[in-house]
């Protein structure tokens, strides 16, 4: 993926996703949730296009399960709506909390989807290669594992189908074929992992004094962007720690939605989360303007 945000230094990308998922995981305030959910959805649509729908097919049922399950196990809350057959109350607050946590989890999943697109293996190895070589390699291998596994699975499946025509008709035959392909894939992916680590070792990966070539350079605008994002994150943390955005679900839903500080917070939060999209829009505007001058 090449775009105005992905082309920035990997450190900038990492800091952005750390901030987005970090704040996304802890802010349960409804307006913040809405802001984060919309920004995450827009960013995911920008980076994944139609594939976002495939992810939403998994996320939305999971969110529904969370909404249903929370009131079953959590009975706190001042507003008792009705009682379960076993005697514990169903409260309005536990329902609202369930909805909030469902939105929260969906948001973080959407961020992770964009992260997968932006933080490619080379960026991860570049960032962690020197500081923690084995962690960097492990991360890059883990992130690469699932798509790689799926591709090789299809490959093996096709080869097996070609080898044993006809067994794929009956249910038992199909299960047998599936199990065989799976067992092939287990040994294949283990072999891949061993191969990768052997290969990296033989190249001297992680040794002292070894240099690595990379195309990433830290430009002045990367520094500006990084400083801006860190300032925004620090401002948000400061506002949170000073209690400018108090919000709680139990025992009753109470907290600040409006007010000057709340709107300052929403503004900074939205600016932080929209960084990738704003960068790209800026780039497009610049491109159009330059082209119209030709």
């Amino acid at each position: 993926m090449r775009d105005a945000f992905s082309d920035r230094h990997p450190l900038v990308n990492l800091v952005f996703f750390a901030a987005a998922t970090g704040f996304g995981m802890f802010l349960m305030q409804p307006v913040c949730l809405a802001v984060a959910a919309i920004c995450a959805l827009l960013t995911a649509l920008f980076y994944n296009g139609r594939q976002t729908a495939a992810l939403l097919k998994f996320i939305l049922p999971a969110a529904a399960v969370i909404i249903l399950v929370n009131p079953l196990f959590n009975h706190r809350g001042a507003t008792v709506l009705t009682y379960f057959p076993w005697g514990n109350p169903l409260t309005l607050e536990s329902l609202l909390y369930g909805i909030a946590s469902a939105v929260l989890i969906a948001t973080v999943a959407l961020w992770c989807m964009s992260l997968n697109r932006v933080m490619t293996t080379d960026k991860i190895v570049f960032l962690f290669g020197k500081v923690a070589p084995s962690l960097g390699l492990l991360l890059s291998m883990a992130l690469r594992f699932v798509p790689c596994f799926a591709a090789q699975f299809r490959e093996t499946m096709a080869a097996q189908r070609q080898l044993s025509q006809g067994t794929g008709k009956s249910f038992v035959g199909r299960v047998k074929a599936g199990v065989r392909v799976f067992s092939v894939m287990v040994s294949r992916s283990m072999e891949n992992a061993v191969d990768t680590s052997d290969s990296m070792k033989s190249r001297g990966y992680g040794l002292k004094g070894r240099t690595a070539f990379s195309l990433f350079r830290f430009y002045a605008k990367d520094a500006v962007l990084l400083a801006l994002m860190l300032t925004e994150a620090a401002a948000l943390s400061a506002l949170l720690l000073c209690g400018r955005l108090p919000f709680r679900y139990y025992p009753s839903v109470k907290g600040a939605i409006g007010g000057v500080w709340a709107f300052v917070f929403y503004g900074i939060y939205a600016a932080l989360l929209l960084t990738p999209l704003l960068l790209n829009i800026g780039e497009d505007v610049k491109w159009k303007r330059l082209r119209s001058k030709i």
Binding site: H75, R76, A78, Y83, N88, P89, T91
Partner: peptide, 10 residues
């Protein structure tokens, strides 16, 4: 607790 509308969890 039910009659008096007092919340209770067990």
């Amino acid at each position: 607790c039910r009659e008096q509308h007092i919340h209770m969890e067990y």
